[in-house]
């Protein structure tokens, strides 16, 4: 079984970025050249940029009518200079909402790691890009770091809400985004591990309780809050704050908590917000 720690140690000993170690691993595993892998990952980046843009400017609504237009509201509010939390955080919130809304409206997105959590990673990376003036090459590399962590999450735990609850989806996305953000901002491989661990720890136990079984409420807004948790975790790690519990143990914990979670709280729409009086009324009205 993979351990993220192994990659951190390898990157440290070779004096490389974590993404470069993962890239080498994948070149061997997939028997593809660096150029091919870069091009494939660049396609993901292009679709991510497209979904951010479409969601920010668009006025699309989901079939149920529950979702759509919130990204544009946040974008307008911040552009008027009204942001409470600053332009970076407000920008990440708007971008995450944008992508998640596009997904709910049956538009084209990149699952990262899943469709329900597709807004977190593009929102965080494109926000760091604005702050750090990152190159496309570095963003693509950071995507490899995110995906590498995702591989460990899949193998040691799960990225499926039906198996592990929302901690496995938005939680995994936030951990992946935190690690990628740290690398993109110039942090060390060790700091990517700390950021991922801090983000994942903040998400442990989060249930998957979609109202009406739709990937809309509360999923879309959890993408936005997940992005802010990723940025908070990255900020701590970049400052030198360590995670007391190492990343692989946190991932194992997420897997264990997911198994302990009752079926009603794992994407079945039989618990949590889905069974509130309002949740039930929404389900009855729209389905």
């Amino acid at each position: 079984m993979r351990a993220y720690e192994d990659w951190v140690i390898e990157a440290e000993s070779k004096g490389k970025k974590l993404s470069e170690v993962i890239l080498e691993d994948q070149m061997a595993e997939l028997e593809q050249t660096e150029e091919t892998l870069f091009e494939r990952m660049n396609n993901n980046l292009k679709v991510m940029r497209g979904s951010v843009e479409a969601g920010l400017s668009g006025t699309r609504r989901s079939v149920s009518g529950l979702v759509g237009g919130d990204a544009a509201k946040v974008e307008e509010h911040r552009k008027k200079g009204n942001s409470l939390v600053g332009m970076e955080i407000s920008g990440a919130i708007a971008k995450a909402l944008a992508v998640a809304e596009i997904n709910a409206c049956m538009g084209k997105i990149v699952a990262a790691p899943t469709a329900g959590s597709c807004g977190v990673l593009p929102a965080v990376l494109l926000t760091v890009e604005e702050v750090c003036q990152s190159s496309d090459r570095d963003i693509i590399l950071a995507l490899f770091t995110a995906a590498g962590l995702g591989m460990v999450l899949t193998e040691r735990a799960s990225v499926s809400g039906a198996e592990g609850g929302c901690q496995a989806e938005i939680g995994s996305a936030a951990a992946m985004a935190a690690a990628a953000a740290v690398e993109l901002a110039g942090g060390s491989p060790r700091q990517t591990a700390d950021a991922a661990a801090i983000a994942m720890k903040s998400m442990l136990g989060l249930v998957c309780d979609p109202v009406g079984g739709l990937v809309e409420v509360p999923c879309v807004k959890r993408n936005a809050t997940g992005a802010t948790i990723a940025l908070a975790a990255a900020e701590m790690a970049l400052s030198g704050v360590r995670s007391a519990i190492p990343i692989d143990e946190v991932i194992d914990t997420m897997g264990r908590v997911g198994k302990q979670m009752p079926c009603a709280l794992k994407e079945t729409a039989q618990g949590g917000l889905a069974v509130t009086p309002t949740g039930r009324r929404i389900q009855a009205d729209f389905l």
Binding site: L30, A104, A111, G148, E155, S160
Partner: peptide, 20 residues
């Protein structure tokens, strides 16, 4: 579970709303 690769985690490029 079985070994995955980076494009299992970032991807597919798909029409929403749910990867699973």
């Amino acid at each position: 579970m079985a070994k995955s690769n980076v494009f299992d985690l970032l991807g597919p490029i798909m029409v929403g709303p749910s990867s699973s």
